[in-house]
Amino acid sequence: MTEPTRARPVFSTEDFQLLKQAVHHYLREIQDKPESSKYSNLYHRLGRFG
């Protein structure tokens, strides 16, 4: 029986920083819309990784 291959991360630390910046920019654009709370939560979750 062969050993399973190790899972590789999909995103790098730098990717999380880029995603966080993009979400922050978008969040400013939609700040008065109802879906802004979902993007705000995503922004804060991304902050845990970077």
Rank of each mutant, 00 (worst) to 15 (best):
R28A: 10
H44W: 15
T2V: 02
P4Y: 03
V10S: 02
G50W: 03
R6E: 04
Y43Q: 14
L42G: 00
L27F: 06
G50R: 03
P9W: 12
P34Q: 07
S36K: 09
T13M: 04
E35H: 10
N41P: 00
Q31L: 14
D32T: 08
M1W: 00
S37E: 08
E14G: 02
H24K: 12
G50F: 03
E3Q: 06
P4G: 02
Y43L: 12
E3T: 01
T2I: 03
F49H: 08
Y43G: 00
V23Q: 15
M1S: 06
G47Q: 08
T5Y: 04
P34W: 02
Q17W: 08
P9Y: 11
S37Q: 06
V23S: 14
F16E: 11
V10E: 06
P9Q: 14
S12C: 06
R48A: 14
Q17A: 06
E3A: 03
V10H: 13
M1D: 07
R6K: 13
T2N: 02
H25A: 11
D15H: 10
H24G: 07
D15G: 03
E35R: 13
P9K: 13
R28Y: 07
R6L: 04
Q31C: 10
Q21W: 07
Q31D: 11
Y26H: 15
D15N: 07
Y26M: 04
P4C: 02
V23N: 09
Y26D: 12
Y39F: 15
M1Q: 01
E14K: 07
R8C: 00
F11L: 13
R8P: 00
Y39E: 12
R48S: 11
L18R: 12
V10A: 07
L27A: 08
H44D: 15
G47C: 02
L27W: 04
R45T: 05
S40V: 01
T2M: 05
V10G: 00
T5D: 03
H24A: 08
N41Y: 11
E29Y: 05
G50I: 02
T2D: 09
H24D: 13
S36T: 10
A22P: 00
L18M: 12
T5E: 08
Q31I: 14
F11W: 12
P34M: 10
P34D: 06
Q17C: 10
S12W: 06
R8E: 13
S40C: 04
Y26R: 15
H25T: 09
H25W: 13
V10R: 12
R45S: 09
F16I: 02
V10D: 07
Y43F: 11
S12F: 05
H24I: 01
